[in-house]
Amino acid sequence: MKKYIVIVISLILCFALGLWLYTYCTTPDNDLSQESLGDVSVNQPFKEIGNDFEIDPKIQLEGKSFYHAKDSKGLVIRKDNKHDRITAIVLFKDNHVYTSRDITIGSAKQEVIDAYGDTYKKSILPKQQTQFHYKDKEDHVGMKFIFKGDKVTRIELFEE
């Protein structure tokens, strides 16, 4: 009986490892090492941009703080409190903030593909939205563009 349990557990672990390896190998790789939203980038020390942002008391998560830009309510950052660095940036509503490759809210899908390439993972989201997920495996950075129709409605840059 013990022998069968060990075999079943081993098969489950092999299957899980194979599934993870398949997902990792089939996700396209992109260079996002120099990527930013406005003047903010992932892993940047918070003290470099702290004066331009104010804490958002509505969002609370243990070990993290969320801030929105003083001059743009559509730009939100997540800070790791322990290391005092930025771990995620989200842009919505504000079309005056651009990625480092000149994409903003309202940009067309084709503009995103021209700037970032066609090596993304596409997902279908609720409310007739689609998502392009670009991933930099070497630097552990991800970037998502959410579209409603043909236009960008949200941009996320985050550590993975």
Results as ranks from 00 to 15, higher is better:
61 L>D: 07
2 K>Q: 09
87 T>M: 09
154 R>W: 05
144 K>E: 12
32 L>T: 03
21 L>E: 10
130 T>D: 01
151 K>G: 03
122 K>V: 05
10 S>F: 02
58 K>F: 13
36 S>G: 14
106 G>V: 00
80 D>V: 02
155 I>D: 00
144 K>H: 07
50 G>T: 05
61 L>T: 07
18 G>C: 04
7 I>A: 15
71 D>F: 03
31 D>K: 11
62 E>Y: 09
17 L>A: 14
83 H>N: 15
78 R>M: 11
108 A>G: 07
9 I>K: 08
70 K>G: 11
159 E>Q: 15
15 F>K: 05
99 T>Y: 00
131 Q>C: 13
139 D>C: 07
148 K>Y: 06
19 L>Q: 10
21 L>S: 15
73 K>M: 08
50 G>M: 06
55 I>L: 15
35 E>N: 12
99 T>H: 01
2 K>S: 09
13 L>H: 04
92 F>K: 15
22 Y>G: 09
64 K>R: 15
159 E>L: 04
149 G>T: 06
87 T>A: 08
36 S>E: 12
112 V>W: 00
41 S>H: 12
70 K>C: 05
106 G>A: 03
70 K>Y: 05
132 F>W: 10
6 V>E: 06
86 I>L: 02
123 S>A: 15
37 L>C: 02
60 Q>A: 12
16 A>E: 08
74 G>Y: 02
33 S>K: 13
156 E>P: 03
122 K>Y: 05
58 K>W: 09
147 F>S: 07
75 L>W: 02
150 D>I: 06
65 S>Y: 01
148 K>R: 09
25 C>V: 09
91 L>W: 00
21 L>C: 09
100 S>F: 00
96 H>D: 12
139 D>F: 06
64 K>P: 06
17 L>K: 07
82 K>T: 11
48 E>G: 04
103 I>V: 06
80 D>R: 09
58 K>I: 08
106 G>I: 00
85 R>Q: 15
73 K>T: 10
68 H>R: 14
46 F>I: 01
28 P>Y: 01
65 S>F: 00
52 D>T: 08
138 E>C: 04
1 M>C: 09
49 I>Y: 01
79 K>C: 04
59 I>K: 14
41 S>E: 11
77 I>W: 00
31 D>P: 07
6 V>P: 04
34 Q>P: 03
131 Q>W: 01
127 K>Y: 12
74 G>K: 09
92 F>N: 14
129 Q>C: 11
7 I>D: 07
5 I>H: 06
119 T>H: 15
87 T>R: 07
77 I>Y: 00
17 L>Y: 11
33 S>R: 14
68 H>E: 12
70 K>P: 09
127 K>V: 05
90 V>F: 08
83 H>R: 13
6 V>N: 07
84 D>H: 11
78 R>S: 12
122 K>L: 14
112 V>A: 02
105 I>Y: 00
139 D>M: 12
106 G>T: 01
8 V>H: 08
140 H>A: 12
128 Q>P: 03
60 Q>H: 10
112 V>G: 04
19 L>P: 03
26 T>S: 10
61 L>Y: 11
151 K>N: 08
143 M>L: 05
84 D>I: 02
128 Q>T: 10
124 I>Q: 14
64 K>H: 12
45 P>D: 06
121 K>G: 03
7 I>Y: 10
51 N>D: 13
27 T>I: 04
18 G>K: 08
145 F>R: 09
31 D>A: 08
89 I>T: 02
